[in-house]
Design a protein around this nucleic acid. Sequence first.
DNA 1: CGTGTTTGACCAGCGC
DNA 2: GCGCTGGTCAAACACG
Length: 532
Amino acid sequence: MRKKCNDKLSFDVLGFPDGLCDDVSPSTAVKIAGDIVRMRRDNSNQDKMNDDTKVGFRIQTTLEVLDDGYRWRKYGKKNIKCTPNPRNYYRCSTIGCKVKKRVERDRDDSSYMLATYIGQHNHEVPSTTASSSSTCPTATGVVQFIPANWAGLVAEGYHQRVFRQRKYPHRNISSAVCFSSMSVVYVLTTPMLEDGGENPTVEQVRRRAKWDSDDYVCRGLILNGMSDSLFYVYQNIETSKELWDTLKAKYMAEDVSSKKFLASNFTNYKKTDSRPVLEQYNELLKILGSHLRIEESLRVQDSDKPKGNNVFGPSVVNRVEHNNSSTYNDNKGKQKHHDTKADPNKKPKDDDVAWWVDSGATVHVCKDRCWFKTYESLNDGSILDMGNESTALAHGRSCVDLRASTSSNKGPRIVSLRILFAALNEHDKVFDNVDMTKAENEGKTGVDVTKVVAESNSDVDDVYDESAQYMASSHHKVTSVESNKGGSKSLYERSKESHDEYLYNYEACDITIDQMAFCGAWNINLRGQIGK
DNA sequence: CGTGTTTGACCAGCGC
DNA sequence: GCGCTGGTCAAACACG
Ligand SMILES: [Zn+2]
């Protein structure tokens, strides 16, 4: 049963700098998996006995059974839908130890074995199996730990990367990142603060809010690191290593054989060469494009949200109120689809243009309402709730069709955004509103999303700084900022030139749409969180 | 016997 | 409620 071989085993935690962790045996891999479980548990204050933390990895091997040092009793075998390979269920043979593992072959590349370890051993490895595991690896290839929500992380990281690097290459992000990560990284090792129960003190609320905010910031920093081939690891070893260690603990794989593991498709690309993960991710997105379907998760993102009973926290900003207390569905029903262009009474200004594309959940800002396909005045007193507890009157509701060409060989997908239009006088309010309040799957070619639009005269640099602040203080992300003030061209100016519909072939749009499709297909929301 | 595998039955959760 | 699915149980079995 146990074969011996002298092949080297390369151990490659996804995203780890090359060479940091290779040539280890499966037992070492499992040990690391155990460390990960422990770290995760420590971070989440779980008690040891009922720990069902899962750690998954995959390893390239021809062997049927890995020798990981422990002894296992097989208790089940199941043919799983959507994969030709059966899944085997094992339980640790040591009495009193509840650890289980599931093993199957990768549906896409059966030279890989997927293993999911559940729980933590309460004992040492049995010494009787003094087999060759430590001296002679029993498998060859690459072990990859799979972050369960890596897909989502990449999706977010991609936006940050685009946002920061493409648009503002002159900005030196890394020092800021390193600086801010040190002040924020405690959230990774400090358990989430109690919110004080029913009668929280002001101080408790404040500290909890700060923790939430810092946690988010920190997560964003990690994403940035991941999305850029751990650039920051090399920038600042100590901090980044801490970041990464904790990243392992926080985001490491759960169940490799669940649907979440679809993210593993991307790991194939990681090791092919040294190109940044995200380039390959983007490629893969296009490859997968035709299979992507927008599903429930876009809806889930909003329906999950409390509608206004939040005491604090980011979701408090995510609502649009109507004084007739109509539901969003009602709004949709009321909305007509004229094919007319926007209200001709609202003349466009020809000065600077600002259009913001967010990461799919936050704010779309557009200077001129004539760019909307439809515009419908609203005088019902609808308001936009601001995160800073102020409000703004919604002036109208509009619709814009965006057509994005995502890849060469398939037709464009149409995104139709229903939009609330609000005039905001103070540009510093721009970031404080709103969210897409409804996302709806229309079935085949597109996604119909309600968005909110606000006017802004902001200078692009102000806007950038503000958006950075905003991202740091909320769960929203502004993905790209466009303005012709800095010489960069506006999305919508470009589409105006085409003098046609509001069409643009702009990568930021591709990203957004792809991200939505991506998130939908993998049931992750637009913040990279796994659904369900 | 002790130990581990095979395999159909059973069960719980979920979506319809 | 009903069927599908994935996870588990346990009786029978295999093997030293
Ligand atoms: Zn054990």
